[in-house]
């Protein structure tokens, strides 16, 4: 259970939730992210992230929570979404909770990638991707239509969109990546890719219950009968160049 207050979302309306993914007790993915962030709060405070990016910020609930636990003036909280209603809700949710979020209508981190690669990148990356496996065409159409289906239609193995984020290589040397995944996303291959393709040192794998594992996923909490959620915490504890 969270000991810190969940962000106030009382300003969002039924109409908003027809267009924007709703954090709700029966959709645990938002709350598993809040749990994971809260479990790491001491480490995060020590790491002092200065650029936080949430991809697909939706209601803005997770970034607002991050800003509450890290401190509103301690970090820049960038939030992207392809859904204009989501960007508006993100903005309003920040304001409702007295934190400043900077929403940008963008696919993934596209508009930031060039500068991120020059300025060191993102210190805290948060992504609750569209992870439900669907036909690739459906995933691409959902992103193209920029509607609520974009929040869950994930393509082959539910990994199409997540793969694009991993390929962008925008994490800073001491960056942390909180990624929600389900069993079907083939978590071992995510880890392998982070290690091999991007030349990262071995990653620490951290699940929301603070179990650290060398091998693979366990865990997790029942969501639907066939859906198991993980928050993968990928971090780069050593400077890439020192360990290369």
């Amino acid at each position: 259970m969270l000991s810190l207050p969940t962000p106030d979302l009382s300003h969002l309306t039924h109409e908003d939730y027809e267009r924007v993914y709703e954090p709700a007790a029966n959709k645990e993915d938002t709350f598993i992210l809040l749990d994971a962030l809260e479990a790491d709060v001491e480490e995060l405070l020590e790491a002092k992230p200065r650029i936080c990016l949430e991809i697909g910020s939706g209601s803005g609930c997770v970034s607002t929570f991050a800003a509450k636990i890290l401190g509103p003036s301690e970090c820049l909280y960038l939030c992207t979404d392809i859904n204009k209603h989501a960007a508006r809700c993100t903005h309003l949710t920040g304001r409702q909770n007295n934190v400043t979020l900077d929403p940008v209508l963008s696919s993934l981190s596209d508009a930031f990638n060039q500068r991120f690669r020059k300025c060191g990148g993102v210190d805290l990356l948060i992504f609750n991707p569209p992870y439900v496996p669907t036909a690739d065409e459906e995933a691409l159409n959902a992103q193209g239509d920029a509607d609520i289906a974009g929040a869950w239609a994930g393509g082959k193995l539910g990994m199409e969109i997540t793969n694009q984020v991993l390929n962008n290589d925008i994490l800073s040397h001491s960056g942390r990546f909180y990624l929600v995944a389900v069993k079907q996303n083939d978590v071992p291959s995510i880890q392998e890719r982070m290690n091999i393709e991007q030349g990262m040192p071995p990653l620490r794998h951290h699940y929301s219950d603070r179990i650290f594992l060398d091998s693979l996923p366990l865990r997790i909490r029942p969501h639907a009968a066939d859906e198991v959620l993980d928050v993968l915490h990928l971090s780069q504890p050593f400077d890439k160049h020192l360990t290369a």
Binding site: I51, L78, D102, V104
Partner: peptide
């Protein structure tokens, strides 16, 4: 809102537009 801290991190990302595309 676009604050200058955010503006400083945004570039044009139109296909093929890779030079002189910032700020």
């Amino acid at each position: 809102m676009v604050r200058l801290i955010t503006h400083n991190l945004l570039s044009c990302h139109v296909k093929g537009c890779t030079r002189n595309n910032f700020p």
